[in-house]
Design a protein around this nucleic acid. Structure first.
Lengths: 150, 150
DNA sequence: TTACATGCAAAGCATTTGCAGATAA
DNA sequence: TTATCTGCAAATGCTTTGCATGTAA
């Protein structure tokens, strides 16, 4: 299996995000710029609200959880990031907005991208009364070492 | 697209569940029998803890939410049902324990089964260090009438 | 100046847990 | 009898919200 670790021009992704924020009518405040930087400068990420909070702190800044949640929702609505539902206990946000699937390592809580061309998904067409929104594919695995658990 | 509505011998599914409960060492108490009946007698279902609670009430019984949650977890551990994560706000439990995928109608919160042979999923093999647990495929759709929303 | 954004603390909500009383075998 | 189960109420943990204060343009 090939796990996608390719970083697709992170700087331009960040700049594109900033541009989208400006164009969208919301103010590119300090907080939003800091969060966009963390989200997009390092390439494709799968990050939780709490992780984001910690990374902000690591840069000697502070952004409240309320703002982080608000911003994540706004960025999601702008199509900059995508919420991925792999575990009901914690929302993860995916900065890769190109089509791809996910490999979820359950005992580590880690998510990796799988390029769509690694999965041959031959879906019959959706009925006319329904609007296809997305197809989520989550390959759930466990590290062998933790196999006894659960 | 063919949505699987086929009911696969619900009575025997219920009996198999009862048998599995007895064999597993947990006591087949009144509450567990009532819940197994609701879950398995009507064929394949996708039900939440709250829905279950209401259905119990509709039969002029009462089982506490604590017991419903505990029982759902036990049944999941026995492999009788499977937790499906389509929306982080509510857990759904799937009584169909054969391989299949899901069609999720987002604006209705409804889930339908899709037979695996309707989706051609050609997955490369998983590395030896990882243990394949499950592959979730969720086809997310919206009713056209609700398309303006969100 | 003024609409919009932030952040604190409180609220909300699904789920879990502690524990005393109840029940199955 | 005794281990196990049930159910209440309280606790938990993530997420959202109300609202006073702060900020960008």
């Amino acid at each position: 299996m090939i796990i996608d670790k390719k970083v697709i021009d992170p700087l331009s992704t960040y700049n594109m995000a900033l541009k989208k924020i400006e164009e969208s009518g919301i103010i590119p405040t300090k907080q939003r710029r800091v969060l966009a930087k963390i989200l997009f400068e390092k390439g494709n990420r799968h990050i939780s609200a709490e992780n984001l909070f910690d990374e902000v702190k690591r840069e000697d800044r502070k952004i409240s959880m309320a703002t982080i949640y608000n911003t994540l929702k706004q960025f999601t609505n702008l199509g900059l990031i995508r919420e991925i539902v792999v575990d009901k206990n914690k929302s993860l946000y995916d900065t890769n907005n190109k089509p791809h699937y996910h490999l979820y390592i359950e005992d580590e809580g880690k998510v990796h991208d799988i390029p769509t061309d690694n999965i041959n998904l031959n879906l019959p067409s959706v009925p006319a009364c329904l609007n296809l929104h997305n197809i989520d594919v989550i390959v759930r695995v466990r590290s062998l070492k933790d196999d006894k658990k659960r």
